[in-house]
């Protein structure tokens, strides 16, 4: 190759094709997605909790994208919920789909584990609830003191995990984070996906039904 213009042009062209295919086309395809009726915007406390989730990197171990029953049947059986659709993420900025499942999927943790006490205690010391867990404990989201002030929230922990004569109170970050986790509920019904997105799955069973009366008559 002798020509630097050809080189740089080619390089930019390949890049432009890739941006069109993987950035612009998905943008055009999902920009008109509407929020499902059952999905509420986050409250400001939930939004703050979401920021705590992001700041502490929860998404590096927890995905938020249950997969379809045909691809990974265990997801639904574990109570992680139905396969998610683009509309489920309407209010999510930034997205938190995640790429690892060192811990379980959390898109429906608000359905599966709605208890505030459990969530707070589990954040303080995961191994108090799941002995084999390798989730870090988050003592910096809590305070250990002699007595809780009237407006403070005391965490109800299994007795072995509270220092004797002390109480564990949740800091506002922990309370917000739990509010966010409790809000994670994508269990409302959604319209079946448009047939074109499912590469024939619903269309295939429908076809014989439609063909049968035609064949018999």
């Amino acid at each position: 190759m002798e020509n630097e213009v050809k080189l740089t042009t080619g390089v930019v062209v390949t890049f432009a094709i890739a941006v069109s295919a993987l950035v612009v086309l998905p943008y055009m395809q999902v920009r008109d997605v509407k929020p499902p009726e059952g999905l509420k915007p986050y409250t400001s406390a939930e939004q703050r909790g979401r920021a705590v989730y992001i700041a502490n990197g929860c998404m590096y171990c927890h995905s938020q994208q249950p997969r379809s029953e045909s691809f990974a049947p265990a997801d639904a059986k574990r109570g992680w919920g139905r396969a998610s659709v683009p509309g489920d993420y309407y209010y999510d900025k930034p997205h938190l789909l995640g790429s690892m499942r060192t811990g379980p999927d959390l898109l429906n943790i608000g359905v599966r584990q709605p208890s505030k006490d459990w969530q707070l205690g589990h954040l303080f010391q995961p191994r108090a609830y799941v002995p084999e867990s390798i989730m870090p404990s988050y003592p910096y989201l809590f305070e250990i003191k002699d007595k809780a002030d009237p407006d403070e929230e005391t965490v109800n922990l299994p007795p072995a995990h509270v220092p004797p004569g002390k109480v564990v109170v949740a800091r506002p970050e922990a309370l917000d984070l739990v509010k966010y986790l409790q809000s994670l509920k994508r269990n409302y019904p959604i319209l079946p996906p448009e047939p074109r997105d499912t590469t024939g799955a619903p269309a295939a069973p429908a076809a014989p039904d439609a063909a049968k009366p035609a064949g018999s008559s």
Binding site: L22, V23, P26, V30, V33, D92, K93, P94, L97, S99
Partner: peptide, 13 residues
Amino acid sequence: VHFGVQQAAMNWW
């Protein structure tokens, strides 16, 4: 510019 699942697609690209 990026939002929702489009952002996820961009992210992994």
